[in-house]
Simulated scan of single mutants.
Amino acid sequence: MTSANRMNNAPSLLLALAIAAVWLPPLRLGARLKLPLSLPLAAAALAAGAQAGLLDVRALGAAALLAVLAAASRAVHRPMPRRVLAGSALALAFALGLHLVPGFSPIVVVDGVQVSPNAAPLRFTVSLDAGLAALVIALCFCRRCRTPAQAGETLRRAAPVALGTAALVLGLAWAAGVVRPDVKWPAFAAAWLLKMLLWTCVLEEGFFRGVVQERLAAWAPIARRPALAALPVIVAAGLFGAAHGPGGAGYAALATLAGLGYGWAYARTRRLEAAIAAHFTLNAAHFIGFTYPMLQR
Rank of each mutant, 00 (worst) to 15 (best):
L128N: 00
A130Q: 14
G131Q: 15
A133Q: 01
A134K: 02
A134H: 06
A134D: 07
V136C: 06
I137Y: 07
I137P: 12
L139C: 01
F141C: 06
R144E: 14
C145F: 03
R146T: 14
T147F: 10
A151N: 06
G152E: 13
G152C: 15
E153H: 10
T154A: 14
T154K: 07
L155N: 02
R156T: 11
R156A: 13
R156E: 09
R157Q: 10
A158N: 03
A159C: 04
V161N: 01
G164A: 13
G164E: 04
G164N: 05
A167W: 02
A167N: 02
A167C: 09
L168Y: 02
V169M: 11
V169H: 10
G171Y: 01
L172R: 11
L172S: 13
W174T: 15
W174Q: 13
A175W: 13
A175Y: 05
A176R: 01
A176P: 11
V178K: 05
V179L: 10
R180T: 15
R180I: 14
R180E: 15
P181R: 03
P181G: 10
P181L: 07
V183Q: 06
K184S: 05
W185D: 11
W185E: 09
P186Y: 06
P186A: 12
F188Y: 11
A189M: 14
A191T: 01
L194C: 05
L194P: 08
K195Y: 06
K195N: 08
M196N: 14
M196I: 12
L198T: 10
W199G: 13
T200L: 11
C201Y: 10
E204I: 13
E204A: 14
E205M: 12
F207S: 09
F208D: 08
R209M: 11
R209F: 09
R209Y: 10
G210P: 08
V212D: 04
R215M: 03
L216M: 09
L216W: 04
L216Y: 04
L216H: 01
L216G: 03
A218N: 15
P221V: 02
A223C: 04
A223L: 07
R224F: 00
R225E: 03
R225L: 03
